[in-house]
Design a protein around this nucleic acid. Structure first.
Lengths: 236, 236
DNA sequence: TTATCTTTTGTACGATAGTACAAATCCCAT
DNA sequence: ATGGGATTTGTACTATCGTACAAAAGATAA
């Protein structure tokens, strides 16, 4: 409280560790884990390569710390919003509130961390695509509980839909969410400027609206042997 | 026709070039571009590292050739299916046919190439997440036309929905499609075995059903200033 | 100030990356 | 069979990777 920072991003010397974390987060989220070297991170943070080793021991350790930094606040925020959503009476409104509780923190959580949660969610998307081992372990540990909680909540508000269908649809939701953060410029390009893929609020509204409708789609009758199922090679 | 191959995957010496392409495609699709070395590819193909340089000059050239190999057949198949879908009279059925025309080739095209198009689509997903430059250029050149054609077709069958909304929803479709191919095991895990994420036919049905519903969702009224828009920091 | 602990710097090492290139080998028309 | 182009092999070069580690610098309490 006593020491005021210069309020510029070139903070004099409050925490080199934080600078490295921020730089790594940004670079990993944009270029992936493997394409970014420790030297790249150090340079972006204005630090020495050896300093990264000192604070985080290894490159994996650095990624691990990034996850640790974000997972807690994000899942906490999700839990709060989910709890509130569960109390919504109208089933339609409740479903929307649940979806919103899942989506919003992915764009905005970690409000104290500059840049918000969107960058971290993008990082998760990229790590997922790269099949990063460190990320995979943390995800399974940290996010599966949350995912199950959301799936259960959605299932409660849509009792006539089989759980498997809900899992699929929430999977699609996560994929859509990830992809929106990975290539937002594609939306702008394909819409010829009518939509802005980088506008978080707009993306959230679109995503929530589309996803709620997807969840409400009729159940996929898996007992009936496929009404019509075209193409697809006959074997396998 | 005269020469019969041994029908084992260790084909004696038909085409080392093909073996390298197949190995690279598989490794890139699973581990990403940067995590796979030319030596890894050569070893998986039973070839010498220098042989890769001989056939494809550079690692980028190898990736480029993979794209060239698949883009043509896949977009051709999509065009055929889209043309057929456009002739469907019932608007509801037509929308489903259009979505199916977009999704099915992503899982199955390149029928002559072993493994089908799912591997290539997964590769595209991973390259997209990694922000691969080579991939980005080819995508913009090759897929934007196809994407616009589908968006237009969907727009025709849903004239009351703004084009921007349709762009967003087709973007979500692609994200969901990608993610389904990147981490199919997540579906199996979260559904506790009730659903099989690796079952292409099942994934297609789920994806089509959910996406059609998403497209049919009410238009997002963007003139009205946000019915209710919670959370999200007030600034920015 | 001085002693001690923390942090940063500079540098080096071994491993591995992409690619180049000459030699060896294979394939096939003549 | 043989000559010649296509292909494969083996190896080497340079660059960069992650990481280790000793020395320098900075901070803190006595």
């Amino acid at each position: 409280m006593v020491r005021k920072s210069t309020s510029k991003e070139t903070a004099r010397k409050p925490n080199m560790r934080e600078a490295i974390l921020a730089a790594a987060e940004e670079l990993f989220a944009i270029n992936g884990f493997n394409a970014v070297s420790v030297r790249d991170i150090a340079q972006a943070a204005g630090a020495n390569p050896g300093s990264v080793t000192y604070h985080f021991k290894t490159k994996d350790g650095l990624l691990l710390e990034i996850y640790r930094r974000h997972c807690g606040p994000m899942n906490l925020r999700r839990s709060e919003l989910l709890a509130a959503a569960r109390r919504v009476r109208d089933l339609q409104d409740r479903l929307e509130a649940i979806v919103r509780a899942y989506v919003v923190p992915a764009f905005t959580s970690g409000s104290d961390l500059a840049g918000g949660g969107a960058r971290f969610t993008r990082l998760r998307a990229v790590m997922s695509a790269e099949g990063n081992e460190v990320a995979r372990k943390i995800i399974a540990q940290t996010f599966d509980d949350t995912s199950h909680a959301f799936i259960d909540a959605i299932h409660e508000s849509l009792p006539h839909i089989p759980r498997a269908d809900i899992v699929w649809r929430s999977h699609f939701l996560l994929g859509a969410l990830y992809y929106s953060l990975v290539t937002p410029e594609r939306v702008s390009r394909l819409s010829r400027g009518e939509a802005d893929g980088s506008d978080a609020a707009g993306a959230i509204e679109q995503l929530v609206q589309a996803t709620v409708a997807a969840f409400q789609a009729p159940a996929l009758d898996q007992t009936a042997p496929a009404r019509r199922r075209p193409a697809l090679s006959s074997k396998t």
